[in-house]
Design a protein around this nucleic acid. Structure first.
Lengths: 218, 218
DNA sequence: CTCCGATAGATTGTTGACAATCTCTTGGTT
DNA sequence: AACCAAGAGATTGTCAACAATCTATCGGAG
């Protein structure tokens, strides 16, 4: 019996498993990803692991140095800012399109989400708020019905999870974040594309400022 | 001697060769990409071809159906519009950042590019104009110094080359396009981020309208 | 004591063969 | 004539062994 548990053979795309392990924090930036190890751990062949690592490298989550193996990529602050800038641009587009296309049911859903976020902040439940936050952004993407933007965003978000997480835990962050999110919801529900775009811009701009603030706090 | 030429072993990343073949039009959408064929054609092993195809699939240029092989992906008009919408958002960001960072030498270079484009239009040389067009957009990306945006854009552009090409050849298109490009150059050279962003928005919006027009002309 | 080179171990890269899957053809049946 | 089933051929998916490369350790020379 090994300490890490038996080799569980899982065929649900190996890349998904490793990606999840990285996103959850089970694997940290800098950790080496040795093909043979992962093959044993997940009960897959080395070839499958190789393919999965190449996939994750293309997504920007993993770094592959020739003949030196793969490791979980470290996303520095400068790059995190660059990523967030692009996110700003694309999420603004999504919000505008969502405001054009949103249905009555979806308006009710978004409003409900907003109320849930308010109560989460009121009760100080940062975990729940963070989850609702992600859910809100995802629903906006879905409503916008812009698959290209959705794909770009999901990749950028994956690269940034670590910073996103650190940011959410900063004291006082939620108090700033909540009204911004509520404004986004209001504008989309008012079916105002321009307003929604501006609201998203304000929100992610404030995220950017927070990021730059952490940069100065070295 | 085979009709297709001898197997030339080239090690300059196989994916680049196939990508170029697709971008140039040597391989058309729908064409099957049989691993053994490509392996023979480029004098590489099947494993290398496999890796290259996976890479191109991640870039969105190739479609890989399980157990059915790969083919050059067909990008429909609806998707081309979606891609262009995202391009609009990200290129606007690039232009704004470029306007903030542009140096005096770069201003001279952009102005020179603008003059070359004018003469190309005056002499009716669409080929040259198209090349200068691409060069302009690339230089703006480089000046903006936003690697994340640059990577996103290069991928989106690759998926859209076919439509982009068809659009450039439409009669009267250059006459609309030229002043828009000159406006972008002017705003960047005036170091006006907001103006540059609006200029890019106007330009790509006009591209979008042209695309939608082709959609109606079925 | 430090620095340099050689050797051994570990890890990735590549190849060829085999297995699984799909497609197209062929022949029979209703 | 249309439809279905079976088989052959083609193509992709997987695997294990081998080669190439890198990293760490050890011994010797300055």
């Amino acid at each position: 019996m090994t300490a890490a548990g038996d080799a569980e053979m899982v065929h649900g795309h190996l890349a998904d498993l490793v990606r999840e392990a990285i996103l959850v924090g089970e694997l940290e930036p800098g950790d080496r990803l040795v093909e043979a190890d992962l093959a044993g751990r997940y009960g897959a062949s080395r070839g499958a692991v190789r393919a999965a690592l190449m996939e994750l490298a293309h997504e920007g989550l993993v770094e592959r140095l020739p003949n030196r193996g793969a490791r979980v990529r470290e996303v520095g602050l400068a790059e995190a800012i660059a990523i967030t800038e692009v996110r700003l641009a694309v999420e603004a587009l999504c919000a505008a399109k969502a405001a054009e296309r949103v249905s009555d049911e979806q308006i009710a859903e978004l409003r409900s989400l907003g109320r849930q976020m308010q109560t989460a902040v009121a009760t100080g439940d940062v975990e729940v708020y963070s989850g609702l936050n992600q859910l809100l952004h995802r629903r906006i993407r879905e409503i916008s019905d812009q698959p290209v933007a959705a794909q770009v965003l999901s990749r950028l978000r994956a690269q940034n999870v670590r910073h996103q997480f650190a940011l959410a835990r900063r004291p006082g962050r939620v108090q700033v974040s909540l009204p911004e999110h509520l404004a986004i919801i209001d504008e989309i529900c008012a079916r105002s594309p321009g307003g929604a775009e501006r609201a998203v811009r304000r929100h992610i701009t404030s995220v950017l400022e927070e990021l730059q603030r952490t940069a100065e706090e070295v």
